[in-house]
Amino acid sequence: MTPRARTAVFFAGAAGIAVLLLLALPGMPSFGLGAHPYGARAVRAGTDQDTPNIIASVNFDQRALDTVGEELILFAAALGAVVLLRAVRDERLRAGGDLRHGPADVFDALRLTGALLLPVTLVVGAYVVANGYSSPGGGFQGGVVLASALHLVYLAGDYPALKRLRPIPPFEVAESSAAALFVVSALAAGALTATERGARTVPWLNAVVGVEVACGFVIVLARFFEQALEIRPRRKEAR
């Protein structure tokens, strides 16, 4: 299909979608004024269970089983990236001597900034995970902060140090164990009464999710780094 024909087909389809969605607009709740029966009940259930952050309460208590599904999507995507981004035939990992050890040639100020920000960011990430039940944040957000903290080392120009900082096998074990632990915990929480849940289960599930998200991001990013920095074709292609 020529680009022109493709664009024409797009505009026909887009016009159809636009018409259908525009027809649906008058049926939408008026902005800012609609009733929120589920929201009001979720707020009441959350405050009854001493979980000030209602979003955490929804994610890790009221709809924890849905979050299990979300967890497994995350797990499957990390697994998929690992499978897709391996060295295929006709490729080799660069020999150790090929990759220069030590930091790249960057400003000292940049290296210092990375070294200073790493512990600070780790603490912030742990804080966001730990306080997710009572303040904005939680396992998903904090996990991403934790994973980013490690990669500050790379951003400061020292990829070999990042490799030493995150040996992949322990992270893979931690990610799979956290995913399994989340499923078990979410199922086990069903045995608790509604008043026992909440303040007890939400911080725990937040921590488990934090570990899983951090490890998942580290593993996926490690594969992308490998592709970009380490894997080379065995022989030059005849293109």
Partner: peptide, 20 residues
């Protein structure tokens, strides 16, 4: 809070799909 929790789910799934 219910739709906000859904938006959070949405963002996480979106990020993983982008990585894939």
């Amino acid at each position: 809070p219910v739709v906000q929790a859904m938006a959070l789910t949405d963002i996480v799934v979106g990020a993983t799909i982008t990585a894939m």
